[in-house]
Amino acid sequence: MSLQIIRAGILDTIQDSGRYGYQHLGINPGGAMDRFSAQLSNALIGKDLNAPVIELHFPAASFLFKKSSVICLAGADFSAFINEEPIPIHKPVFVKEGSMLGFKSIKWGARCYLSILHEMQIEKWLGSYSTNIKAEAGGWEGRHLKAGDRIVFTDAELFNHQNIHNLLLPWKSDGIKKNNKLDVMVGNEWNWLTEISQHSFQQNDFQISINADRMGYKLTGKKLKTKEEKSLLSSAVNFGAIQLLPDGQLIILMADHQTTGGYPRVAHVISADLPLLAQTNPNEIINFHLTDMGTAQEKLIQQQKHLQEIVEACKLKMEKYLLKDK
């Protein structure tokens, strides 16, 4: 009784909200690139927000369900279909045993999250299900999913089939709204930039280069300069840190960033806007808008409260479809 990978995608991994408590050992948190959408896919089927999900990049894998389940997709829209029938994102879908789930093309975004109502039989590594490809640990055998992999579902029969009349369950949510203007806070080395460069950081467009992956996005734009040549001893960095490289270009650190780094941290994309950034693809244009700590934290708190409301409501909605003794 399992989920079978029929064809591999380019990079499909199991992720959760990250692995914390080990950065002092050089082990990075990893986790979903777009945490909001990963959590939303769980929330809509009433699962714990931090439960493991499958993060899909395009072209994505195709899956065969050897057991009926309820799934929800969130984040990027990869034109998903079940047995040739298109299915929407941000809406729970009942998948019958023997069905194939596949993805046709990118309509929007870069990362799609697949949450499954059943528990997947995978083991935690250092407290998290996230796949750390570099350490070959966590998630599914520490690597991306390949054709032939079978992820076993551990739960017994979950459903009260009498109440399931339609493959689409009757509720949905909105996903994140596309916006290329990202809120950022100044970083510790912001004042290393010349005034002209500080200005151009805020006024100019930056393009996501082809060197953009789970570790970081290298940007292409007007070169920025520092007032003097200074070097920085290595110290901690985090998801969203915008560093100035020696060639005057910027790099934004993403989920699989190193734990420490030595390039000046000129700014940080605020946590609430990281999901937007995680959904941008190479060649897209972004720009930065300075904000303050209060605004940044308030935006994140509102986002989290919104997710908590959805998960509470959906837990109740799901009850009708589940067997009572479960």
Partner: peptide
């Protein structure tokens, strides 16, 4: 969430929601 010592700095990563 994490405490990361480096050469001459110490960084504390925290969970905004938990503290809020």
């Amino acid at each position: 969430l994490d405490v990361v010592p480096a050469y001459s700095s110490l960084t504390i990563h925290y969970d905004v929601m938990k503290i809020f």
